[in-house]
């Protein structure tokens, strides 16, 4: 399938290289996210249908989903989403300022957001590390390792932070790329579906 956002060609070779590397990680993350969606659909359905028709719910489903799969699916592909233009913003400013200023604002916004994500990543990584070192477990249907639940916040936000820094810096260097990166609210972009 064709994704207009992925056609963005980054100006300097070093950015192209960085983007390609990051994009590989993001595609892997998206694959994990898609697997998560499929797993939720199948496990929750199997639990409900098994419970109703065979009196045999999937006992571990509730804990597996709420400890791991939900968090993983919610966070792992945040960066991939941004690369696909999956962010909503108020477009008012675009009509007021010129292309150059628009690009600068776009870049600054991304860099500020990157700081927020970096803070979250650092503290969440500390929690995950702590759980790993202490070998913390949730006591449930089985013993569930806590670090595996905690790892998705630093992974997702860390990857997102890298993406925001890369795109932010790139747009500051070459403001006209803001137009391409900001396509998500362009009314003339066809929706992928159908």
């Amino acid at each position: 399938m064709h994704h207009p956002e992925e056609d963005v060609v980054y100006p300097a070779p070093v950015f192209r290289l960085l983007d390609a590397g990051l994009l590989r990680l993001e595609h892997a993350a998206a694959a994990v996210g898609v697997l998560g969606l499929a797993a939720i659909m199948l496990l929750v359905s199997a639990d409900a249908l098994g419970r109703y028709f065979f009196n045999a719910p999937v006992q571990f489903q509730y804990e597996l989903t709420s400890h791991y799969i939900m968090g993983m699916t919610s966070l792992v592909a945040l960066s991939w989403g941004v690369r696909r233009g999956a962010h909503i913003r108020i477009g008012f400013i675009d009509q007021v300022v010129g292309e150059r200023l628009r690009g600068i604002l776009f870049g600054i916004n991304f860099l500020i957001a990157a700081v927020t994500m970096a803070v979250i990543c650092v503290y969440a990584a500390g929690e995950a590390w702590h759980a790993w070192v202490n070998a913390d477990l949730f006591f449930g249907v089985v013993d569930w390792p806590v670090w595996l639940a905690r790892i998705w916040v630093p992974l997702g936000c860390g990857l997102l932070c890298l993406r925001l820094v890369l795109d932010g810096v790139m747009v500051l260097i070459d403001p006209q790329h803001a137009r391409v990166l900001g396509t998500s609210t362009d009314p003339d972009t066809e929706v992928d579906a159908v």
């Binding site: 939720i40 709420s66 939900m70 929690e127 916040v153 936000c157």
Partner: peptide
């Protein structure tokens, strides 16, 4: 920092949330 990290952890993994993606 701790507040944001915990907020992202707690609210991203809420079971009730699964209705939205599904």
């Amino acid at each position: 920092g701790p507040l944001m990290a915990e907020t992202f952890f707690e609210h991203s993994s809420a079971y009730l949330l699964l209705t939205i993606p599904m």
